[in-house]
């Protein structure tokens, strides 16, 4: 693996991905009804590629046991078998099929990442908008507490919490969701602060609308764009957080396959030019790019800019 071969392969990979995206968009347009098709036509190739990728990942995640040729934790062979049938991507250090682990990894990693991000967004957004809406002492108290949590380096905070509460999946989800929700809170609050000053919110308040109504019907719909952009990045940071935690010896329980730990497990091989750890790392990178391409497209549409 030299720099030059990377440079040669890169454009080819990009061209093929965009081509696949185009095919996927055209197929979708044929399959769906007219208004949706019209909407889809506005998708640039990058976004089409994003949608294709997300579809593939979700399929993998849902149908993992059907797609994967072997069992998730099944020990099949000696360590590090080469890339040849029946092990398309070879085997790992324990002799488990890498392709199988990758497919199950989609289920575990994407599932957990989605759960964490969703939790973080529900908690962070609601609390953020609520603080902005109420202001005063509530805003101050919540704001200080969030500040305290944000001021602790997130890795150290999770190290502390996971050591105290154990490393079960539930505590992992709750700890990372807590950390993420503070970032979401900050964003949601600042966006909401701008909105609550607007006249129509004043009007709704005077009408005597309930807080729940104000948050869900008046403020939230107008704050989706920045929140969606944040969602795209936060979602992917969860993988990295899990990976970093496994660097410090925490993370998901074995033998559960997850991409973050798969990168970590064989990471040292990269410094000898062995590309084994690049496969799960690539899986994370492609998903990150795909999600953000789609988010960019939606944001662009929402912004109302014509060009």
């Amino acid at each position: 693996m030299s720099l030059i071969s990377v440079l040669i392969w890169l454009p080819i990979v990009v061209a093929v991905s965009l081509g696949a995206g185009w095919l996927f968009r055209q197929t979708l347009i044929r399959l769906v009804n007219a208004p949706t098709a019209k909407f889809l036509r506005t998708a640039p190739l990058t976004a089409s590629f994003g949608m294709l990728t997300i579809t593939i990942y979700v399929t993998c995640a849902v149908f993992a046991p059907l797609i994967a040729p072997f069992g998730e934790s099944e020990i099949l062979s000696a360590s590090f078998e080469p890339w040849a049938a029946p092990y398309i991507l070879g085997t790992d250090n324990l002799g488990r099929d890498v392709f199988t682990r990758l497919v199950y990894g989609a289920r575990n990693t994407v599932g957990i990442a989605f759960l964490i991000t969703a939790l973080a967004f529900v908690a962070g957004t609601l609390l953020g908008i609520y603080s902005a809406l109420k202001g005063g002492i509530i805003d101050q108290v919540v704001g200080r507490l969030i500040d305290v949590l944000m001021a602790i380096p997130s890795l150290i905070f999770s190290l502390l919490m996971l050591t105290i509460f154990g490393t079960s999946v539930i505590s992992l989800v709750l700890v990372i969701a807590t950390i993420d929700s503070t970032r979401v809170f900050r964003l949601a609050r600042s966006v909401a602060l701008n909105i609550v000053q607007l006249d129509y919110i004043e009007a709704a308040k005077l009408r005597g609308e309930s807080t729940v109504y104000l948050i869900t019907r008046e403020i939230l719909p107008n704050a989706t764009a920045p929140l969606a952009a944040e969602f795209g990045l936060r979602f992917c940071f969860v993988f990295l957080m899990i990976s970093s935690l496994s660097f410090l010896g925490l993370g998901l329980q074995p033998p559960t396959a997850d991409w973050g730990s798969m990168v970590r497990d064989n990471a040292e091989l990269i410094s000898f030019g062995d590309i084994t750890p690049l496969i799960p790392a690539g899986a994370i990178a492609i998903l990150t790019i795909a999600v953000n391409f789609v988010v960019d497209w939606l944001l662009h549409r929402a912004s109302g800019l014509k060009d």
């Binding site: 990295l240 970093s244 990269i270 410094s271 000898f272 790392a281 994370i284 990178a285 790019i289 953000n292």
Partner: peptide, 21 residues
């Protein structure tokens, strides 16, 4: 955009190892 995104979608230690290589 894609380059920047792929750079942040790799764990820090991994970026470090690649640069070391």
């Amino acid at each position: 955009n894609a380059t920047a995104l792929s750079a942040i979608s790799m764990p820090e230690f991994f970026v470090g190892y690649i640069l070391i290589y």
